[in-house]
Amino acid sequence: MDFKSGAALTAIKILSRGKGIYIIITTSSLLLYYPIFVKNPRITYLLVVISVLNALVAVLADIDTHKSLFYAFRICGATPSTLMTYIITTSSVVTLISLIPITICIDVFGVLTSLLMNISVTTSLLYMSYIKVRKYS
């Protein structure tokens, strides 16, 4: 699979115009309070769970836009590489922002767990949306 820069740029443009990215930036900024001011090791586990939920909700917020784009991809005859580039770019941007509060905790295990879970959840959600669009078109 080769990387399609056009699809990556499209993903970033769609994200920048949607609600999801601003929601996750807001919630991640608010969550920064906990690793900085609350000295409790158990906070890390909760932050991992919350970051996964935040990433999920950030993708859900713009799911209609993503579905429209998948439909446009189908019409334009985009290759699977283009589609996967779009999905992975969207997931990566959302995941990177959602990881900020956990990175402050300086917990390598927490960061890796969150990274893996966020990428899996967001990629799966986007791919399932694509499958739905493909099924009904």
Binding site: T27, Y33, Y34, F37, V38, L53, N54, V57, I63
Partner: peptide
């Protein structure tokens, strides 16, 4: 006061995220 602030921040986060989640239920 820090305790109260953390509870309000949690409330704000959950309100924002829950609102967006329920909007996805609209269709």
């Amino acid at each position: 006061k820090e305790s109260l602030l953390s509870s309000l921040i949690s409330a704000l986060i959950s309100s924002i995220v829950l609102s967006v989640t329920f909007i996805a239920l609209q269709p």
